[in-house]
């Protein structure tokens, strides 16, 4: 969108208003990506904030080479990768596993919570994917990116993205179908 480049120009000229507009425009998209990547709201909030600070710190290095949104997503993807390798992640993931176990203990879920249960299954299934496959699936399915754009954002080539998507979606299909079948067994009344 041409407006993005215009807003970047204004930010470079010192406009805080333009910075606010650009941040609000992409905040939810980036938060959604990070949230689905890390699976935790608080961590996602902190990481999203760090991403946007990084964006504004590096705004001078953005020189209209490509779409602003692609540049922003590249920073988000790399920031999440850095977090993935950090010690912070290892600590948080232990807590998340504990929470996950507590959720799974509730075996008799009432029907009205079935959708929530499916959501949790999808969340767990997505979190089991290897990092690169998860990135490709999230960007393709939830952010409607084309394969070429995913390749640019994740700094790889088109064939690799296709392979990651193929493997990632295949794993998800297996995991989710199994989950749904288990759920159906649970809810089917015994005669």
């Amino acid at each position: 969108m041409p407006e993005d480049e215009q807003l970047v120009k204004e930010i470079l000229a010192g406009s805080q208003a333009a910075m606010e507009v650009l941040t609000r425009k992409y905040y939810k998209q980036i938060f959604a990506y990070v949230y689905r990547k890390v699976g935790n709201k608080e961590t996602a909030y902190d990481l999203t904030q760090e991403i946007f600070i990084k964006v504004i710190q590096r705004i001078q290095s953005y020189s209209n080479k490509g779409k602003f949104s692609s540049w922003l997503y590249t920073i988000a993807v790399n920031h999440c990768r850095d977090y993935w390798r950090s010690s912070d992640f290892k600590q948080t993931s232990k807590l998340a596993e504990l929470n996950e176990a507590l959720v799974c203990d509730k075996s008799h879920v009432p029907y009205i919570f079935e959708r929530k249960e499916i959501r949790e299954q999808v969340k767990t299934a997505v979190s089991t994917l290897p990092e690169h496959q998860r990135e490709a699936v999230l960007l393709k399915y939830f952010h409607h990116m084309k394969i070429k754009e995913i390749a640019d954002v994740t700094e790889t080539n088109v064939s690799t993205v296709k392979s990651r998507l193929h493997q990632g979606l295949g794993k998800l299909a297996k995991l989710l179908k199994r989950g749904v079948e288990d759920e159906e067994e649970k809810t089917t009344p015994y005669f």
């Binding site: 949230y35 959501r119 999808v122 299909a173």
Partner: peptide, 18 residues
Amino acid sequence: DLEQEIGSLLDEYDVEYP
């Protein structure tokens, strides 16, 4: 095909925004 197969399930993974 895979996207179509599991799309409705993936749609359930909504986000609670700040």
